[in-house]
């Protein structure tokens, strides 16, 4: 559809009829609302937008969209999203997933999507745990944390997604926090407007398996990059 004849979209126009079934208090709710609002700000058209995912709690998200939506195979969202972009270059393509999906089974795909600079936006909702399968340690579970698979505390070092994506020469790397939906919204807009592969880590607490204090713990730890930080051009 020609942009000038496209209908004016509001955030609710992007919502599907499915109600999210995440646990009450899940960080993904804040992200999803910000996601809808970013779509409205960008005036994305349903027929020119695809939201793809792998498997996991956050990977349920395409089901809550009225755009084209694909819930794929565990860890394989990036090859799938790449295929969508290659076959329909005019489409705005999102790849969505969690830390387990993206940094464990799917980790091998990230470097290639980054080096090829595929013009898609990869968003990882990082909750530091495998939530859908009920609380096993993931690549971003902090050292020493007890989970269902780390009874005496996690012995693995915590994975640092931002550091990895910079090392992979991704052309856009950002971090945001689902407890601040306005910030999430702006980062999504910036990522989509970037002409190339954009990566966004969203700190999105799992209140069920990481604890209800996660929002406060993260909020106490974050700092906003000010105007002095030169991220690049």
């Amino acid at each position: 559809m020609n942009q000038s004849t496209a209908p004016k979209m509001s955030a609710r126009d992007y919502k599907s009829d499915l109600k999210p079934i995440w646990c009450p208090g899940c960080g993904n709710f804040g992200f999803l609302n910000a996601f809808y609002k970013a779509f409205e700000a960008l005036q994305l058209q349903l027929e020119n937008t695809a939201v793809c995912s792998g498997i996991g709690c956050s990977s349920r998200l395409p089901g809550y969209m009225k755009t084209y939506a694909f819930n794929g195979v565990h860890g394989r969202v990036l090859p799938f999203a790449t295929g969508v972009k290659m076959s329909r270059p005019e489409t705005t393509v999102f790849a969505i997933g969690g830390d387990g999906d993206g940094f464990s089974i799917g980790a091998g795909h990230i470097g290639h999507a980054a080096r090829k600079n595929i013009n898609i936006t990869y968003i990882v909702l990082d909750n530091n745990i495998y939530g859908l399968t009920k609380g096993q340690a993931s690549p971003t579970t902090p050292l020493g944390v007890k989970t269902k698979t780390t009874f005496d505390g996690n012995m693995g070092m915590q994975f640092n997604p931002v550091r990895m994506l910079i090392a992979y020469k991704a052309s856009f790397v950002a971090r945001t926090f689902s407890g601040d939906p306005k910030h999430v919204q702006q980062i999504i807009i910036d990522a989509v407007n970037h002409n190339g592969f954009s990566f966004v880590e969203v700190l999105s607490p799992c209140v069920t398996f990481r604890g209800k204090d996660q929002f406060k713990l993260i909020r106490d730890k974050v700092r906003y990059l000010d105007g002095k930080h030169n991220a690049g051009k």
């Binding site: 931002v162 550091r163 910079i166 856009f172 790397v173 945001t176 980062i187 970037h194 991220a231 690049g232």
Partner: peptide
Amino acid sequence: MLGNELEAFDIANDEKELALGVIYKKPSHL
């Protein structure tokens, strides 16, 4: 390595304070 890439690594390496925002961006070759 570009100057802003080094700065971005410094920010990413800081695990006591989690930086929020666009941490690294470079001109796209597309």
